[in-house]
Amino acid sequence: MMRILGVLALLTALYAGLVGTYLDNAPAHEPASKTQERIQGNLVDVANIQGRYGVIALGAALVIITGGIDLSIGAVVGCSAVLFGVLMQSGIHPFVAVPLVVLCGAVVGLGNGLLITQLKLQPFLVTLCGMFVYRGAARLLAGTVSRSQTIEMQPDFSSALQSVRYFLVGKNIKGELEFPAEFILLLVLAGVVGFFLHRTAYGRYWYAIGHNELAAKYAGVNVSRQRVAVYVICSALSALAGVLLFLDMPSIQSDSGGQYLELYAILGAVLGGCSLRGGEGTAVGMVLGAMVLPVLENLVSIRGLKSDVIPAVIGLTLLVGTIVDEFIRRRSRLNR
């Protein structure tokens, strides 16, 4: 509980700030129900983005718990988004294309994992190179892909694509956001990840490997296999996020789709309690951690801050949040 207290406090403060700003800015004559409706609408918008960030944060956190890191997340997201579009345009049905793309993500993760465990290369290096490679692969696949372009080329897929969109992203045929499907998806995935992390032997192994690989090895754990498994999960989740991105954005550009997402994923994981040294982290924490940045960006935007000031404000807020969090954690350790 202690571990997530810090991020919980940060989130509460941000949400309070958000609601407060809305209440402050509400015109005097506006009925309370309308204000509430607006606040709800905004929170639902934000929730969808939190969902997407959360999906990749889950993968990043698992990798970090085992003491590794994955810098190729953003590139895999972008490449998967492009791949999804290209597959459908080539005639593959959307219902088939989604699992296919996730499978490709898993293969990418397998590659990362094998390079790291068999050739004993540093994860930082392997995934950094992967970032360039998959970014390049995306550009080779296509320049830009979009939903409308896909429907144009494959009009039969239109309804299937729309139902996938509704189911995964929550937008109806007119593009209206009806419910935060991505957030619900996150909760489901977080539940599964949490189950494996906290309730199964595999989770124990991941924690052990992250903290003391030698102890795990001597205990008979197949360290390589577990490491590879975790990278596979991470890249598969990134691919899923790529599909979500394709369905949510008007178009995806291969050179920039998913840019910087690995940093947001790692940020979410770390804010949620993962230590970059490995061996720490909880499923609840990961979700909370991923929720921070979208809310923060939203708050800053709603308050009408000048564009130039925004990056600095975001950075400082995160720094303060991190300091408070570390402080809380240290006190809890002393009182054990």
């Binding site: 800015n25 015109p27 506006e30 607006r38 609408g41 905004n42 918008d45 983005i49 954005m249 008007p250 178009s251 995806i252 550009q253 920039s256 789709g257 840019q259 910087y260 960006e297 939203n298 935007s301 709603i302 009408g304 000048k306 564009s307």
Partner: peptide, 29 residues
Amino acid sequence: LVDGESKTDDGLKERAVTNARDMLNRVDG
């Protein structure tokens, strides 16, 4: 002109969407 300035997104397509969305929220009605 709301805020008296252009809202920038540094070329990040996602932020272009969220900038517009946030502005819609602020000028609702």
